[in-house]
Design a binder for these strands. Structure first.
Length: 492
RNA sequence: CGGGAUGUGGCGCAGUCCGGUAGCGUAUACGCCUGGGGGGCGUAGGGUCGCAGGUUCAAAUCCUGUCAUCCCGACCA
């Protein structure tokens, strides 16, 4: 069993940090706040990317790429957006180094190489993209523009954690331009739904869809939709956001088009994104004290086969069976690894693949050769059974679906058990402290109340859920009338 | 940026109070035995003790500064 992993109960955040490193997902780098995503972690990210990219393209989007640097004058054009990010921007001020005359062998910034205009390293790309779109749009015939980019962005964070919050992270950002308000709103909703579908069907992570309050809204947006997930420690995590930007950026960057009727109008905009933060969400949704647990739909290796042998002849016999299974499994689209390295012991391999969350493990030894069986172990339940070699491919095909569903169900049960309705503020504080999770409560709709609750409890309104029934009530803090419950939680 | 903690072979740590030849576990390399859940025995290699100053005959140890990491706040996807 995983020897050195701190348990979730002992210290959840330590467990997370250790797991990310020990499962070979990522590690800290020599650059403060920036991580190295290791091959195994990147393979999971690539699977996420591939699926999302497919979903974006199926809904008519195309990929493009915009610059890393944003001239300060462009950055500040949309004031609210600029203000929102101002405090966490990295800025390029110079373009050259030179030998330091006072310090042999060292370099210094050449003071004569100061840029006339500073460049902001993008914390998000609205500014540079809208400046570009200005040149692309003249007529309603040029619309809509449906573009996505896969990129890195930099937000100078004070406290960082692998995947959850790093100064540089990878993400995709979609930026669309539309002729009408309704069309842009529909796009915003569509993308939020795509995120939800991805989270639930591929990450096996249940999410709640809803709308952000004014305080939590994206800087520069008129409306922010989101999906929120619940982690095993009872904290919420924003897993994706989709913004209706109204005409804010069109006005800031003067992006107008001639409508069918011949009027000059500002275009309507959306932007939407998910980041490598999803990796953190994936870890914290399913994994256990033995290590990572990956849903089959995102596992880089879905099945691993470990031979158990005492000598070369045995290995040769086992490999014959194993290679046949590999071929059969691959033919059905299952990714499988036959780990016949002689440099590691079987027990070590078991532990390692468990730590790395491989959904299904097969072990084949001399006894199996006699019996025509294999030992099959499920990562999610840790249960082992012997399966006839002739039946194992069918069995695994079924398991891929079953494990995927089972992980989702388990996470959904946990999530549902951790949505608690409360009717007054004492109850609110008690539930937050003792149970955690989402708290469903009435709210009077004001930012003042939201802020007071945040200051008193550290819980914020995660979202105003879409699926909530309309229910008259009174605000949990002020007692003022409220038409709907909202979900509060402490958040990542 | 404030409060706290920690920096010692690749990794995890002891040694620091009370200055006197740098140690343990693990990992690595080699050999043999092993092989159905992180194996056993033996041998070997590997450390300017975060960095820079200072005190001292002598500093991992004491003093000053500095940097980094982690935890708790403020900020945030």
């Amino acid at each position: 069993m995983a020897k050195n992993l701190t348990t979730r109960k002992e210290d959840y955040s330590k467990w997370y940090n250790e797991l990310v490193v020990k499962a070979n997902l990522a590690e800290n780098s020599a650059v403060r706040g920036c991580m190295v995503i290791k091959p195994y972690g990147f393979a999971i990210w690539e699977k996420m990317q591939a699926q999302l990219d497919k979903m974006f393209k199926e809904t008519g989007h195309e990929n493009a790429y915009f610059p890393l640097f944003v001239p300060k004058s462009l950055f500040e054009a949309e004031e609210k957006n600029a203000e929102g990010f101002a405090k966490e921007c990295a800025i390029v001020t110079h373009y050259r180094l030179k030998n330091d005359p006072d310090n042999e062998g060292k370099l210094m910034v050449d003071p004569e190489a100061k840029l006339e205009e500073e460049l902001v390293v993008r914390p998000t790309s609205e500014a540079i993209i809208w400046n570009t779109y200005k040149g692309w749009v003249q007529s309603y015939r040029d619309l809509p523009i449906l573009i996505n980019q896969w990129a890195n962005v930099v937000r100078w964070e004070m406290r960082t954690r692998l995947f959850l919050r790093t100064s540089e992270f990878l993400w995709q950002e979609g930026h669309t331009a539309h002729a009408t308000r309704d069309e842009a709103i529909a796009e915003t909703e569509q993308m939020n739904n795509i995120y939800a579908e991805f989270a639930e069907n591929f990450m096996a992570m249940p999410v709640i869809k809803g709308r952000k309050t004014e305080t939590e809204r994206f800087a520069g947006a008129e409306d922010t939709l989101c999906i929120e997930a619940l982690m095993q420690d009872g904290k919420a995590l924003q897993a994706g956001t989709s913004h209706f930007l109204g005409q804010n950026f069109a006005k800031a960057f003067d992006v107008k088009f001639a409508s069918k009727e011949g009027n000059l109008e500002y275009v309507w905009a959306t932007s939407w994104g998910v980041s490598t933060r999803l990796m953190g969400a994936l870890v914290m949704t399913h994994s256990d004290d033995n290590g990572l647990v990956l849903p089959p739909n995102l596992a880089p290796i879905q099945v691993v086969i470990v031979p158990i042998y005492k000598n070369e002849e045995q290995l040769a016999q086992i490999s014959e069976v194993a290679n046949k299974l590999v071929a059969e499994l691959r033919a059905t689209g299952i990714s499988v690894k036959y780990d016949d390295r002689d440099t590691q012991k079987p027990g070590w391999k078991f532990a390692q693949y468990e730590l790395q969350g491989v959904p299904v493990r097969l072990a084949i030894g001399p006894k199996d050769l006699e019996k025509g069986s294999v030992e099959l172990a499920r990562r999610d339940t840790l249960k082992k059974e012997f399966v006839a070699q002739a039946e194992v491919v069918e069995k695994i095909k079924g398991l891929m679906v079953e494990i995927q569903e089972s992980l989702y169900r388990k996470a959904a049960d946990f999530r549902n058990e951790h949505i608690t309705k409360v009717e007054n503020f004492d109850e609110f504080k008690k539930v937050l402290k003792e149970k955690g999770g989402f708290i469903s409560a009435h709210w009077d709709g004001t930012s003042e109340t939201e802020t007071k609750i945040k200051e008193a409890t550290k819980a914020t309104i995660r979202l105003i859920p879409f699926n909530a029934e309309k229910e008259e009530g009174s605000c949990v803090l002020t007692g003022k009338p409220s038409a709907q419950r909202v979900l509060f939680a402490k958040a990542y």
